[in-house]
Design a protein around this nucleic acid. Structure first.
Lengths: 343, 343
DNA sequence: CTATTTTTTGCAAACGTTTGCAAAAAATAT
DNA sequence: ATATTTTTTGCAAACGTTTGCAAAAAATAG
């Protein structure tokens, strides 16, 4: 029944004071080696465990990072979390994780909680329906270290870790064109989110470069999930729209399209070329070309950035806003190889 | 520059005391409606945010749950986390998440941290190389609510949420036999882990039931990852061991086998039947039969169990150890359908 | 208008640490 | 031996809350 042992208990037991015990346990040079040994021995014996709540209260800082993502169980975010965790642990930080379920309300709520928990800093990727920014501005004003990744608020002057989404998308579409595809559909997301806006831009750019006129009727917004992808594909096939490839802003919508095409009996890549985005692990299995985002690295980079910022604040170094751009890589697989490419 | 506003600041501003402010903000019936309104208005105005660190210190309990998994970015665990989060949030709890990277040392370290953070309770799934239990016994002795899921320590008298692994494995192997497969390999894991021990038991049981003698040379231990699965398959094919099906304890090892078989030109399911375990999302894509584990539900159930335990402690209700067993479901797909089954 | 009850407020302790400063003990110098 | 320096210990405050108890203010009763 060794209920909570505190340094007070140790002090009493040893006929000394809490200051001595505290210092001894923290290896303060003020304490003689003998007392240190004595105290430590007793502490172990009594099963003492430091109370970090008390410690945090006492000296302001909390060694806990807040991490907010739309959904924990999506491979991309799970990988980012994994990356963040590895760096955080290494530096002695804990992780408080919340999910917004892609809702701004929950996002704001989560931020509030994180702030009340007095986390040392926050890493966040925004909800897909995110519109207002005010609560982030507040964070910045209050001087709380913040890093946004992937889905960021561009209008905000804040540290961010992002993908060169436009480039990735551009590479994908260019590749399709080089393979001989001409009428390329775009399955995109809401333009209010930087990520989708940029991927769309890459699509536009690649077309322009190849002097293929942009046809807005080939562009579909908010086709992000597998279900949406499949449904959208079905509708398109229904109304006999002419096309020969799809550049999707999400692997999942690409997967939906893939399945529907297979069902309909259209052959990939002969009749329809396909490129997704994110290089989810399933893409390899079905031979789908995609764009690698280096999600684990994105997490690690975000964590490093945040920790640097935190350390910086502590020794109040000059403030700065950093932006890290991760360059994505096109992974070519069967789904987009018609075979016209030279080389 | 509204640095940390505390109730003290509000009190000063309002010419009253912190007790009044505290009570007002907490809607204590001791406070008149007018003062409440006044205080709340001022608090909002000053941008006050409660400091839950202080609150936690003051009244012992912490409204944070500790969650420890081998790896965050494995679909199964990511789903469990997702499930836990949804329940926790709903009840006003935060989540402190750690990963052990399947190492006992890191596991023990994480438990230590979680305890120092004074979490209200802990949910854990054990590392794959886990052997000793002592630090869990300590948790129990110290009266910290604990729930183990999936990979549990059976020897410990503790709340647990597990799969009927034996049943799941039994169903899988029985199904293979019914399909006409006879020489069934087993790709398993270390018997020190309940999960693999049970899946092996299911394999044994199904064979016995069908009067097929158990041949230990068909059983391979520690074949859990994709790489291991592929390597193992390769070796087996190399030495021309006679077999016609594989019952894997992991989807990943099954995947490895799948790829190697494909490479070698052996046809699935005609020449080799295949069943995995976990129903990872990729299994559907490649038509691999598997066993559904209901991972999100497992997380939700674990969280509920833990929260019940926590609430129970608070009103010291009689103690009890609960065990929830989730019944898995065999999902039959192409990879195991030779087509001999009647019906 | 005083005495009593009820409502509202304030005082002070507690939660478990860390740490500046003063005090005591030990070591060194005279 | 005493004076001085150095090493080691102890006292007490602080971090931001909540809450039992006493005190004050307001409302009601006599």
């Amino acid at each position: 029944m060794s209920r909570k042992v505190t340094i007070k208990d140790i002090a009493r037991e040893l006929n000394t004071t809490i200051s001595t015990v505290s210092r001894a346990l923290n290896d303060s040079p003020l304490i003689s080696i003998q007392t240190k040994a004595l105290v430590k021995k007793k502490a172990a014996e009594m099963g003492y465990r430091p109370n970090s709540i008390a410690r945090q209260l006492r000296d302001g800082r909390s060694r806990t990072l807040g991490l907010l993502v739309p959904r924990i169980n999506r491979a991309f975010f799970a990988n980012v979390i994994h990356g963040v965790e590895s760096i955080a642990k290494q530096q002695g930080y804990q992780l408080l994780i919340c999910q917004s379920n892609d809702s701004v309300e929950e996002e704001e709520e989560a931020i509030k909680t994180l702030r009340e928990q007095k986390v040392a800093g926050i890493i966040v990727s925004r909800a897909s329906d995110a519109i207002h920014d005010d609560f982030y501005q507040e964070i910045l004003d209050d001087g709380i270290p913040l890093v946004m990744f992937d889905r960021v608020a561009k209008s905000l002057n804040v540290n961010q870790v992002i993908n060169a989404n436009e480039k990735g998308s551009y590479l994908a579409v260019k590749h399709l064109i080089q393979q001989g595809y001409q009428k390329i559909l775009h399955f995109g997301g809401p333009l209010s989110i930087n990520v989708y806006q940029e991927r769309y831009a890459g699509y536009v750019k690649a077309l322009a470069e190849a002097h293929i006129p942009l046809d807005e009727s080939l562009v579909f917004r908010t086709v992000l999930t597998q279900e949406e992808g499949q449904k959208c594909m079905k509708q398109i096939l229904g109304r006999a729209l002419s096309f020969d490839a799809i550049a999707a802003a999400s692997d999942f919508s690409a997967l939906g399209a893939y399945l529907e095409l297979e069902k309909t009996g259209l052959s990939i890549p002969e009749q329809v070329g396909l490129v997704g985005f994110a290089n989810e692990s399933f893409t390899e299995l079905i031979g789908m070309s995609s764009v690698e985002q280096y999600s684990v690295d994105m997490g690690m980079t975000s964590a490093k950035l945040l920790l640097e910022e935190i350390e910086g604040r502590e020794k109040d170094a000059p403030q700065m806003h950093r932006q890290m751009v991760i360059v994505p890589k096109l992974v070519v697989r069967r789904s987009s190889q018609k075979g016209n490419e030279r080389g």
